[in-house]
Design a binder for these strands. Sequence first.
DNA 1: GGAGTGATGACA
DNA 2: GTCATCACTCCA
Length: 176
Amino acid sequence: MRLLNKFFARSAVVVATELIGCFLCRKLKDSKIQRLKIVEIEAYEGWNDKASHASRGKTARNAPMFEEAGTIYVYFTYGMHWMLNIVCGPKNYPSAILIRSLENVYGPARLTKYLGIDKSLNNQKLGKSSGLWIEKNENYTKIHGRGKVNKLSRVGVAYAGPIWSQKKWRFVLKEI
DNA sequence: GGAGTGATGACA
DNA sequence: GTCATCACTCCA
């Protein structure tokens, strides 16, 4: 079952937690649909989050973060890598989740390369039009039972200072 | 461990 | 206009 925008219109931390184990779906040029389990996610929440692009206010680059929930935010970094984010929370409130790893596709830049995700998807909505959406896993309760999801500190955010870099806002699925 | 890559934002 | 920075991957 496809997750609707309503699902994303909540706290990024909650959304990130619940997305663990769900399927990221991508329709490619040849019409084949890829369905890959999400195993690692980070949350970026609000104005005060120093690790978030939005901490310095709205700019041309991070504008999609201020759009309504379910908007796709793709950005380019390190001169060669695309990052895939999904916007969360209410409109004009900057929060998003960063999809870091899928089953068998580990690494945020690898998965975008693998799924053919680039700037053309930026600021689009999840769904048929963009060819990118997320489906709920039928085994959701099984996956989330008995501490199957690790909570860790986020990656590469030391510059954000101890308060924000130590937040346990990275969620990783343990082996099933 | 270190190079590579280029958009971005801060500053002048 | 310049410059340092960056939520990474690759190859050693």
